[in-house]
Every structure is written in C-alpha cells, then in structure tokens.
Design a protein around this nucleic acid. Structure first.
Lengths: 154, 154
DNA sequence: GTTGAAAAAGATCATCA
DNA sequence: TGATGATCTTTTTCAAC
C-alpha cells in the first residue's frame, strides 16, 4: 500500500508541481518510457494515492482575500456532536479546511470569505447556530507566507 | 481584474473540482463552445487567477499522517525578522502552509511529517534554530474532517 | 520494463458572425 | 465575445521484444 518506490515518489512530486504534465514529460523526468509511466499513474489513482486533480486559484484575485482561522470547542466530545459537526462542515463551502485537534480546542478550521461582514454572517447564521458548540475563537490571516501543493516526500 | 462574470465563476468552480477536465467537457458544463472556453481558461491563467494545476495526494497513504499546527511568536515584529522567517519557511518542505496572523501569535503554520520524531527533528534542527523566534506552541491534528479544493465563489 | 506504430481523443488556430 | 472547421499534438492501446 504505502510501498512507494523511488520512481513512485518522483511521479508524485512532479505531478503535484504540475497536475497537467503530459505522460511524456513525466516519463522523461522520472526516467521511464511513456507506457509504464502511464500505467504507474493509473495505479496511483486507483490506489487512491492520487485523489484527484485541481486548479490552484488565487484567493485574493477572485475576491476572497480573508482567511479566518476558527478554533472551536464543543460542549462535550460526544460522538453525536462530532458527527453532526463534520456533516455541517461538509455542507458549508466557506470552510475549506477543518481538522479534529488534540489540545485545548476540538477543531481548527480555515474559513475563506470576502470580508469581515461575510465572516460575521458565517458565524451568526451557521457556526453559532450549531448545537454543541461551546466556544469559538477566531484569528485572521494578514498574509499567506507560504502555500505548497507539494508534500515533503523522502 | 476581479471582474469575473458568471461563466468565469463556473469555469473556476469546475476546474477546481477537476483540474484535468477537458476543454470540451468544460465548455459543455459552462454553456460555451470549446474555442471561447479555451480562450477564457488561458486568460484566467495569464491573469494569475489560475496559478497552476496540481494532483491532490492522500497524505496518510504516502506515509505522512501527521499535520502539526505551530503557532509562532517572534521576539519583535521587525521587518528583518519577518523577511528571514518567510525565507526560511519557503526553504522547509515540511511547512506546507504558513500565514502571518493577527492576534496573539505572529504565524500559524501547518507542518506535515511522518511521525512525532520527525516533528521533533523539525523543531530542533530548523524552527528553534531560527533567530528571532520567541515561542512555539504546537497542536496536532487527529483527523482531517474536511479539505476542499474549491473556493466559495458566489 | 521497453519500443514502436496506429487509432482515438483533445487542443489550437485562423476565420467568420 | 462566441461559433465553426482544419490541423497538430497527445494519449491510449496494442503488438512484439
């Protein structure tokens, strides 16, 4: 399963950097001929290692300059609350990332919005209305210092 | 610049969901014929709205199950420190996301590693060695509840 | 795993409305 | 800005090595 060899790592690295690289270029880059290279990519897709492909969009340029980080505590970590929370989060498009955390908070989420008013609205009409939410603490990002699409393989 | 019309928004939404969608399919989906659709995609690329394309990789399946969130305070928010910090972060592949923040911390970063030992090593050999870092607080993600590649456009 | 060739699919470009 | 059709590139699939 996670028995990925040197060539597999090279493919994953290259395909993260350019999700639209052609099989020929990729084959060159990893030192393979096109056929086995294509076969390997297909295997990575079928294994779920490559989950999909996406265009990387400039948030600010599409009118969404704000990333708000909300740290959330639930009243109790009851299974029921956790499930409901996950379902709600899945429905809300503003929430682009959400993690179940160790430590003093239960969740950390990144919320992408156009302005503070939109964040206010997200809080009032969605997050605070969810049952079981005990507290919310928000920090705002002033600037994105780094965003890498490439995982640190070997 | 951010004068994106309905079709532009549809293109951006669709191309985030599938970064390898063909121009034909995309054209169908947004109600255009292939040529003008391709022209629009190229314009979005040239405007930097589409920054690139990437394969979405399953972190856990490539042996990187841990996301650590480090909140960092600098000694002083001197320009010099900020620049150096940004440069260091750019060099470290473990740091996949990093934001300059409002509030009690200066930075929030997500660090992707194979295990706690690797995070320890990241702290010891890299982060704590950087001049100007006053404090580091880490929380670990137990689970990824959501990760969306799609921004909440209109 | 490699090579090479043929068929199918997609992208691109000039041109016209 | 959008549509159409010709051309070129790329991908895929297949054989044989």
């Amino acid at each position: 399963m996670s028995q990925i060899d040197e060539i597999g790592r090279k493919i994953i690295a290259a395909i993260q950097q350019d999700g639209r690289i052609t099989i020929q270029e990729l084959a060159d880059k990893v030192g393979l001929s096109p056929s086995p290279c294509a076969r390997r990519v297909r295997m990575l897709e079928e294994a779920g290692i490559i989950k999909g492909y996406s265009a990387v969009i400039d948030q600010a340029k599409v009118g969404l300059p704000i990333s708000a980080f909300a740290s959330i505590k639930l009243e109790r970590q009851r299974e029921e609350y956790l499930d409901r929370f996950a379902q709600a989060v899945a429905r809300w498009p503003e929430v682009v990332d959400c993690y179940l955390m160790t430590g003093q908070y239960d969740y950390l989420m990144r919320v992408v919005v156009a302005d503070l008013a939109a964040y206010e609205s997200f809080l009032k009409t969605k997050l605070t209305r969810l049952e079981g939410v005990a507290s919310i603490e928000t920090s705002f990002a002033l600037d994105q210092v780094k965003r890498s699409e490439v995982l640190p393989l070997g």
